[in-house]
Amino acid sequence: MNDNVLLQEQLGRVRLLTLNRPAKKNAINDPLWIALREAFQAAAQDDSVACVVLTGAGDSFSAGVDLASFAGTESDAPHPFESAARAVADFDKPLVAAARGAAIGGGATVLFHADMVYAGETFRMRLPFAALGLVPEWASSYMLQANIGAQRAAELFYTAEWIDAPRALELGIVAQVIPDEQLLAHALQRAAAVAQWPVSALREIKSCLRMHHTAAIDAAFVAEQAGMARQAGSPDNLEALTAFFEKRAPRFD
């Protein structure tokens, strides 16, 4: 595993995690899924960490799953995405995200598990699951509508349209839009303001905030995994992937 796919830095009581595949727009491959899982599990267990900040290197937050990592692979083993997504969803301390540039698919839905999301002015988000013949993941089928309402969430999922930073702010997906060059510093400052308080209190507050959602998040994970099992490898999904690699528009029946 390439240890450099996820950079980690301890800044006082804040742990900064940086997706570090900038040449691939931080698309998430197997080593990065594993690194995310291990980093969030370690941060949850380390009482010197009061808050985590998640960001991306380069000009994008994350282009989501690295589709190239699936090409020509067949395995019955569980994909590391599942355990990585659960590690983020189950993280019991405050999580702050700083996202600029593209946030696509899993690179967008991971943001729904952050307690505070700050976006750069270049932030652009897309939920492309319908266009790929797939279903949402990261329990986003629940998390997004819980955050912004059922109709607005349905519109984003069904249309697979791009959402820019002002629209994301209007919808309540992000808390604030910051100039790109100031984004990370602002997120770290807000994280430091959180991290000054006792870890035990922060854990209890997050537990209280999430208790109303836990069962629905668990149900969404189960439903999405079942839907993904039905759709992955289906004719529509294969056509979408073929069109992606051939750089053409898909032709659905």
Rank of each mutant, 00 (worst) to 15 (best):
I205F: 01
N4K: 14
L6F: 13
A23Q: 15
N4M: 10
A44Q: 13
A50M: 02
P250I: 08
P166N: 07
A23C: 06
A229N: 14
A168W: 04
A219G: 05
M228I: 03
E74D: 12
I34N: 12
L156M: 14
Q231G: 13
F112C: 06
K93I: 12
Q151P: 00
F70E: 08
A23F: 11
E38H: 09
A119G: 09
P80G: 10
A77V: 10
A223M: 09
W138T: 06
P136S: 13
A216F: 09
A154D: 15
N237K: 01
A39T: 02
A77D: 15
L144P: 08
A154T: 12
L95Y: 00
A103Q: 09
L156K: 02
M1I: 08
D92C: 03
P78M: 11
R37K: 14
F112M: 11
A87V: 08
T122E: 06
I173V: 15
P128F: 10
A240E: 03
A175M: 06
G12K: 14
F129Q: 04
E74K: 14
Q45N: 13
L202D: 11
L183T: 09
A185W: 01
L169S: 08
E224R: 08
L16H: 08
L188Y: 03
L169F: 11
D236K: 01
A57D: 10
L17H: 05
G133N: 13
G56T: 06
D76L: 11
L32K: 01
L95Q: 02
A119H: 01
G101L: 00
S200T: 15
I104S: 01
P198A: 14
V199C: 07
A201I: 02
F61Y: 12
A185H: 02
I173H: 03
V117M: 01
N26R: 10
L127V: 10
A114G: 07
R37Y: 10
Q151R: 12
A98L: 11
A154I: 00
D115S: 01
F221M: 13
G58E: 06
D236P: 00
V53R: 05
D115A: 03
V177L: 00
F245I: 03
L16M: 11
A165G: 11
G106L: 11
A102C: 05
N29A: 15
V117C: 00
V199Q: 10
A223T: 13
M116A: 15
S83A: 15
I178H: 07
L19E: 09
G58K: 10
L202W: 05
R152K: 14
A102S: 11
I34Y: 02
H186V: 14
V110A: 07
V14S: 03
A130N: 07
A192L: 07
P22S: 11
S48C: 05
A114R: 01
A43S: 15
G227Y: 08
V177S: 00
L171F: 13
Q10A: 15
A57N: 09
A201P: 00
Y142H: 09
D59K: 13
Q8C: 07
N29S: 15
L188F: 12
F81T: 00
F244H: 15
L171S: 03
A57I: 13
P80E: 12
L11Y: 05
I28Q: 06
I217W: 00
R37A: 11
I104D: 03
E224Y: 07
N26F: 13
F70Q: 12
L144A: 09
V49L: 02
